[in-house]
Computed example of a mutant assay.
Amino acid sequence: MRKYLKCLLLYGIGGLLYIAPELAWRGHSHWTMFVLGGICFVLIGAINEVIPWCMPIWKQTLIGTVLITSMEFLTGCIVNLWLGWGIWDYSEFPINVLGQICLLYILLWVPVALAAIVLDDWLRFWMFREARPHYCLIKHKRRCKTWI
């Protein structure tokens, strides 16, 4: 039960953090963005649950960026193309796929993914007494060179 509550709390934090920049920038968001943000945050948090801590942080960030981009594309295909809700359309942006993802936003997801990885790890440490986060810049045989 505690595991589900932890997941639900992290989901809620991720959802709120996902819509916050949109609310600040545009003054509005859509409820599906809260759902998407929560899912992305939980998935990114699972990176260190599945992959050893010794994986370099840049690789974790790349995985997180791919996760967010994939979820954005899937959600866009459902809510924009299939349901026709028109929540976003990146057709005007160069290098886009069906107007649901584009290169500019993929690049913007890189720092977001990094921040989500670090935030999730520290929240787990502070709130749930999980292992203290540590990160590797490079993997060298069995040892890591840490920077945090």
Rank of each mutant, 00 (worst) to 15 (best):
G37H: 05
W109C: 04
I78G: 04
V50G: 01
I57N: 01
I63H: 02
A115K: 04
A115I: 14
N80T: 10
K141G: 02
K3M: 01
N96Q: 15
L17S: 07
V50I: 15
I63N: 00
W147T: 05
N48L: 08
I51L: 15
H30Q: 12
F93H: 15
V42D: 07
W126Y: 13
L81Q: 08
P94A: 00
C102K: 00
I138S: 07
E130M: 02
M127E: 11
L10S: 07
E49D: 14
S91N: 15
C54P: 02
F34I: 07
A113N: 05
L5C: 05
M55Q: 09
L108G: 05
M71E: 07
Q60R: 07
E49Y: 12
G84P: 15
G14S: 03
M127A: 15
G37L: 10
K141Q: 06
F34L: 09
G37K: 05
M33E: 03
I148S: 10
G38I: 03
L74C: 06
L16N: 07
A116W: 13
V112T: 12
V118C: 07
S91I: 14
H134S: 09
W88H: 04
L123C: 08
R143C: 13
V112I: 15
G64I: 09
V110T: 05
T65H: 00
W82D: 14
L67H: 03
D120F: 11
P94K: 01
L103S: 03
K59S: 08
M127P: 11
L108S: 06
C77W: 12
P56K: 00
G86F: 12
Y18D: 01
N48A: 05
G12F: 07
M127W: 14
H30W: 15
L10C: 07
A131S: 13
